[in-house]
Amino acid sequence: MKASAFSYTRASSVTDALDLLALHGDQAKVLSGGQSLMPALNLRLSAPALLVDIGAISELRGISESNGVLKIGALTRHVDILRSPDIAKHAPLLTEAIAYVAHPAIRNKGTIGGSLAHADPASELPACTIGLDAIIVVRGRNGERRIQAADFFTGIYETVLSPEELLVAVEMPVAKSNSAHFFHEYARRKGDYAIVGLAASGILEGDVFADLRLGFFAVGDRPLLAAASKHLTGKPVTASMLADAQAALDAELDPQEDQQASAGMRRYLARQLMARCVATLLGRPELDARPRA
């Protein structure tokens, strides 16, 4: 199939882009890397009147660190994240997670801003921002908003971003010396969207989680910061604490059924991932007891 006809304009600056979005409202779509938008256009699932290409706005590119905050520009491509020593040092969870995002040719075009604004509940990066307690920076003609990642995503392909705003950057605290992270997803094939995934980060004090942020994805209409982690912090994790945490997780999940998995299967796999995460971060394989015949 070929895309429906649309107009195209290339924004020269964030201000220019915001003016265009203000003028055209929801008739316009922002074109960043295009790796989710273009398939929708080609399949005629989306038919905007205007594409505002922000790809040439250099101020939206780049990775920097200052005062303990890592800032990633919205146009930063997945491949840039994958290869960035700054990210590897300050947000190794992202380095690990990005390798699960699609395939090299997609990662060469896809951007972090595009992925977050697209808000596919099965994609990796939204959950990572939640797991890393990131701030999503958006700009409108009336100024900038700084939104906690956990508050940013509101539904399937839905965020708090208004049609007249632009996601400009993501900021997150740099990893501390006692930070630990975990990433895993269950997917049918390499690069596929996850059936269930988990992007987690924690602070370890000895063998105790001082903090644990569990960003689950593909378990509902948006990535989930699991409140169940509170059962795992503050004291050495026991099997019964983990069981409590798994039960609590089960209660807060609202997974959807699709061709890959039933809701019950997603709940099951999410509980498995939690155990695997805790066991891995604590170096205690016995907590992730594999089924034995």
Partner: peptide, 13 residues
Amino acid sequence: LTPRVILTALGRI
């Protein structure tokens, strides 16, 4: 033989 088929057979879900 999808994961769902295997997990169902194993009685896990």
